[in-house]
Design a protein around this nucleic acid. Structure first.
Length: 679
RNA sequence: CGCGGGGUGGAGCAGUCCGGUAGCUCGUCGGGCUCAUAACCCGAAGGUCGCAAGUCCAAAUCUUGCCCCCGCAACCA
């Protein structure tokens, strides 16, 4: 009989910057599912990769004076390194710059064109020449370029379009008839109500304004824009449209695409429509998980927020980090990452509960029996309850894993660990050890402990990669003995006559206070930020706003490994003194300040500057009350071109320092009189 | 009336779909034990489940209205 297959994917990540803990979150989750399915006997195909084309990368490469390919090569090797460090067991890694992928994309594009699903038209938009960017009307800010604030002009760009609208009804039908297609359900409703039912517009699928992409074969000035290039990776990786498509026939349709919640839309609307147009089956499920947020609020300053996965792995080990990611947040909801929470998890779950249980069990076998349990054992009170719990455990874990409820699955396993710790108190082995006649009973008690741990070591295999072996080694279970998933269902498989190896503590306790101080040192610029979810940069999000990179280079300790250690964007461009001289900075005094109706961020200020009054609109309402500003001396950018904000003219801008938490306006050390030049 | 998420003991969450003893983890306090990583086990304190009205024998859970917080979007010059 042929093995059942299981095909799972992560998004392909956009290598414009290095990855952060959020990307690791998605990938570790996919890895846990993959490992679980393999243990269950599936023939698994686990795919991850990178989405390497697009304007943003082209620009970044230009800025560094290297080719886009050189640029992405560097970052991609860092990403591969990271996955290796995190023990990600992907079977394949696709890069959209791989030649087989590019060839397949060209064929797909051509096929869709030949079928009439792609047609040539014009893309109307506002063009910002310095930025070389198109913007839609809604993206414009005050009718100007949202990036640089300069004037834009209405332009038409020749472009190819995909007939997305044609598939609208079929998509709705599919989603309604397949309740599992979009998970969790809340996302399903969102898609139907917000996008599908209001109606779809055709999608622009080519660009002429940049050339770092897959060329359209029959119209060389166009490159394929993100959608067809990126989304199709899920099938091109399997050889779709290539000479050898046996993997495609074997694994497609995918069992699950794991994605962050912000790109659910692309995967449940655009991607299925593309597949419909190609006449190929749709993926069975798209699972949109939540975001891993960083701790908010003022607390963070005293805590430090190192969120580079490599730092954490170096300090606490890969299993601790993997455990935390999968345990802390219920998959599907948003969760919070903090160093404190991580350390607490490590201490209480890993060190105190599991690590200590291994430690005391092995120590007792060593101390009471010289390292080898005797065969003669007597069952007794409390045994049946423990056994009953472990008898149910594998089944429970399976049910939860089938729903991708990692957190709950781990929670069940830890309940059993806890129960085992309690069993020691109930049976009091140290009391039994006092008399020779109780030895058979003592042996049974400790055997049950070892057996519990054996089962635990099997069940945690999807989540942790080193710990299972460490536990088995200490218990004296060698090689693949009693290691397979099914054996977790057979109580009594702990081998006879093996001798234990008292070894190192598996998870040392961490001194939380000391550790927080150390992390703080590692990360002097610690501040609260929001981690974009794991895929902030995947699939088409290139087009989205700026990326807020959590683990920006400033957070990285100097001795860190090179997982994408180069961050070409971090250094501000150098300017000359002449550039600086263009700014006319002046001291000004706040005469009046008031809130602007209908805005929660803006204040209207009246300033006095060397006899002249200026009206300035400033986005500081969340940090300053109007009253507190009156009378303050501030620094004004006096020669800024006036603009209207909320219909109110702003004639300049006042300087303020800010990070994500707070904002402080720049004032002066002592009085000097308004109008004084600042330089 | 822009979209979405949320308000449950000190902290973080579950429970809300399918009304019926308010549960878990951490922390605090007290006790037990000594095999173990100052760990483990037991117990206790602590919540009018954001507010109000309604339905019902019964509401954290259903209905309606309101308040507050957090993302996103929009104004952040």
């Amino acid at each position: 009989m042929e093995k059942r297959t299981f095909y799972i994917t992560t998004p392909i990540y956009y290598p414009s910057d290095k990855l952060h803990i959020g990307h690791s979150y998605t990938t570790v989750a996919a890895d846990a599912i993959s490992r679980y399915k393999r243990l269950k006997g599936y023939d698994v195909m686990f795919l991850t990769g990178t989405d390497e084309h697009g304007q943003k990368i082209q620009r970044k490469a230009e800025a560094r004076g290297i080719t886009p390919k050189q640029y992405v090569d560097e970052i991609v090797s860092g990403i591969k390194e990271l996955w290796k460090t995190m023990k990600i067991s992907n079977d394949r890694f696709i890069r959209t710059t791989d030649d087989y992928h590019e060839a397949a994309v060209q064929k797909i594009f051509k096929k869709l064109y030949d079928n009439g699903d792609i047609y040539k038209s014009e893309y109307e938009g506002w063009y910002c020449t310095p930025c070389e960017s198109f913007w839609t009307k809604t993206q414009l800010v005050d009718g100007k370029c949202p990036d640089c604030g300069r004037e834009v002009e209405l332009t038409k760009e020749e472009s190819y379009f995909f007939r997305l609208s044609k598939y609208q009804d079929r998509l709705i039908k599919h989603i309604e008839e397949n309740p599992d297609f979009i998970q969790p359900v809340s996302r399903r409703n969102e898609m139907l109500n917000n996008f599908l039912r209001p109606g779809l517009e055709d999608l622009c699928v080519s660009r002429t304004t940049f050339n770092w992409g897959v060329p359209v074969t029959f119209d060389e000035k166009h490159v394929v824009y993100v959608w067809i290039d990126a989304l199709s990776n899920y099938i091109t990786a399997l050889g779709f449209m290539s000479e050898n498509n046996s993997d495609y026939r074997k694994y497609w349709p995918a069992d699950v695409h794991l994605v962050g919640k912000e790109i659910v839309r692309f995967h449940t609307i655009i991607w299925p429509a593309m597949l419909m147009a190609l006449g190929e089956p749709l993926p069975k499920q798209v699972f949109g998980h939540g975001w891993l947020l960083l701790e908010g609020g003022k607390m963070s300053k005293s805590k430090g927020n190192v969120v580079d996965p490599v730092v954490l792995i170096d300090k606490y080990g890969v299993d601790a980090v993997r455990y935390f990611l999968l345990r802390e947040v219920p998959f599907g909801s948003d969760g919070v990452f903090s160093n404190e929470a991580l350390i607490q998890r490590i201490n209480s779950d890993l060190a105190n509960d599991l690590g200590n249980l291994v430690s005391r069990t092995v120590a007792m076998i060593d101390k009471y029996f010289g390292g080898v349990l005797p065969r003669q054992r007597t069952e007794g009170e409390f045994d049946s309850e423990l056994k009953a719990m472990f008898a149910e455990l594998p089944q429970k874990v399976e049910e939860l894993m089938d729903k991708y409820q990692f957190s709950a699955a781990l929670s069940e396993i830890w309940k059993a660990i806890s129960r085992t710790n309690k069993y020691i108190d109930e049976t009091m082995p140290w009391a039994l050890a006092k008399s020779e006649e109780n030895k058979p009973r003592l042996a049974a008690v400790i055997y049950n402990l070892a057996e519990s741990l054996r089962i635990v070591s099997i069940l945690i295999q999807p989540f942790m990669t080193e710990t299972p072996d460490k536990i088995r080694h200490q218990l004296g279970i060698s090689g693949s003995e009693a290691l397979d998933w099914e054996s977790a269902k057979r109580w009594g498989s702990y081998p006879e006559g093996v001798s234990v190896n008292k070894g190192e503590v598996i998870f040392p306790r961490i001194d939380i206070k000391k550790e927080m101080e150390e992390l703080e040192k590692l990360n002097p610029a610690a501040r609260t930020e929001q981690v974009p979810d794991s895929n902030a940069e995947a699939h088409g999000n290139k087009a989205a706003k700026e990326n807020k990179d959590v683990s920006g280079s400033g957070n990285r300790a100097p001795q860190e490994s090179k997982a994408a250690s180069s961050d070409p964007t971090s250094k501000a461009e150098l300017i000359t003194i002449d550039d600086f001289a263009k700014l006319d900075l002046r001291v000004a005094k706040v005469l009046e300040a008031e809130k602007i109706e209908g805005s929660d961020k803006l204040l209207k200020l009246k300033l006095e500057m060397g006899g002249e009054t200026r009206q300035v609109v400033s986005g500081i309402a969340k940090h300053y009350s109007p009253d507190s500003l009156v009378g303050k001396s501030v620094i004004l950018v006096a020669n800024l071109k006036p603009v209207k904000l909320k219909g109110i003219e702003s004639q300049g801008m006042i300087l303020a320092a800010s990070n994500d938490d707070s904002l402080v306006i720049a004032t002066l050390d002592s009085e000097i009189g308004t109008g004084a030049k600042v330089k």
